[in-house]
């Protein structure tokens, strides 16, 4: 499903002294099939944006009470926001938000803290049963849960009867992800999927997401503040800062904006930093900023250049 947002703005606690503008006139398109990265500093509005995608935060015009404000004389009314996820128009009051949430799976930050059921099986089945049109047959549920648990790389026979609280941190996170993808959403949104994991755990989660992307969910959107994660994994990345989208680029072009990124409190990916310092030494390397590609191209350099 294609995701299209135009002129999207959002204010927390509007009309109170605590009002905080989280999004300002965001325009962004995510094509079907992408592994899309959203990067930004804390408070840049990236989480607010992704919570719009499954209707947890609503565009004001989709709310029951909403009435359009009449523009004052001589004032140009702000452009109407647009937010479309596949066939769903999220600015419409009549949107079926249940169906939307079934097609847009959302994994929140630290999803292991949402586990609650007595067994791993019950926890993963929670979403499946909630979204079923009519009460699913037991064997259907079992089948779906088994596939989801195996998809995230856990041993179904071993963990199905265990309490989710007996598992290790990384396993808990896998179970939580299984609990979201069990309904086979077309779009999978993950907020900081690798936060708080050790380097190996991070790599495993990313590999898992690529596998889900290949086999189950056509479009994957990840939110992160870690440039390396985005550069290594994404087809396109949107840079958020102060509630606005600054750039939408393939990660390999991000390094052209080194200074601006630093000003936004973001670091360049490690590989990009290496490339830049090599460039200053007069060695230009044209790579796509994944570690593998970089190493291959460095090794392909003429021998005498490598020794310096």
């Amino acid at each position: 499903m294609r995701i299209r947002a135009e002129h999207l703005s959002y204010t927390y606690n509007a009309d109170t002294p605590f009002a905080a503008h989280a999004l300002h006139d965001v325009t962004l398109t995510i094509e079907e099939g992408e592994f899309f990265g959203i990067i930004g500093h804390t408070g840049s509005g990236k989480s607010t944006f992704v919570q719009h995608l499954n209707g947890l935060l609503r565009v004001p015009s989709s709310m029951k009470k909403y009435r359009r404000k009449k523009p004052k004389k001589g004032e140009i009314p702000p452009p109407e926001p647009v937010l479309q996820v596949g066939q769903f128009d999220l600015t419409d009051k009549k949107t079926d938000f249940r169906a939307l949430r079934r097609s847009v799976g959302t994994v929140f930050q630290y999803p292991e803290y949402q586990l609650f059921a007595e067994t791993v099986f019950e926890d993963v089945a929670f979403g499946y049963r909630n979204f079923a049109e009519k009460k699913p047959m037991e064997h259907e549920t079992q089948e779906a849960v088994k596939e989801a648990i195996e998809m995230v790389g856990l041993n179904y026979g071993e963990v199905r009867g265990m309490s989710p609280f007996e598992l290790s941190g990384g396993q808990k996170r896998r179970v939580a992800i299984a609990g979201v993808i069990v309904t086979r959403p077309a779009v999978l949104v993950l907020d900081e999927p690798a936060a708080g994991l050790d380097p190996l755990g991070k790599q495993e989660v990313m590999d898992l997401l690529h596998r889900i992307h290949r086999e189950w969910c056509r479009t994957v959107v990840i939110v992160s503040h870690d440039m390396d994660e985005i550069a290594e994994n994404c087809t396109h990345a949107a840079v958020f800062s102060d509630g606005e989208v600054k750039y939408v680029l393939p990660p390999r072009e991000l390094f052209r904006h080194e200074k601006e990124l630093l000003d936004m409190g973001l670091e360049l990916p490690l590989v990009a930093k290496l490339c830049l310092s090599l460039e200053r030494q007069g060695i230009a390397i044209d790579c796509d900023f994944t570690e593998e590609d970089f190493i291959r191209k460095v090794l392909a350099l003429p021998r005498q250049m490598r020794i310096c």
């Binding site: 919570q51 249940r98 949402q114 929670f126 909630n130 609990g179």
Partner: peptide, 13 residues
């Protein structure tokens, strides 16, 4: 709020 959102995303009503 956060947990409710997470469960809503999993279809809790």
């Amino acid at each position: 709020d956060r947990i409710m959102n997470a469960q809503k995303a999993r279809g809790a009503d």
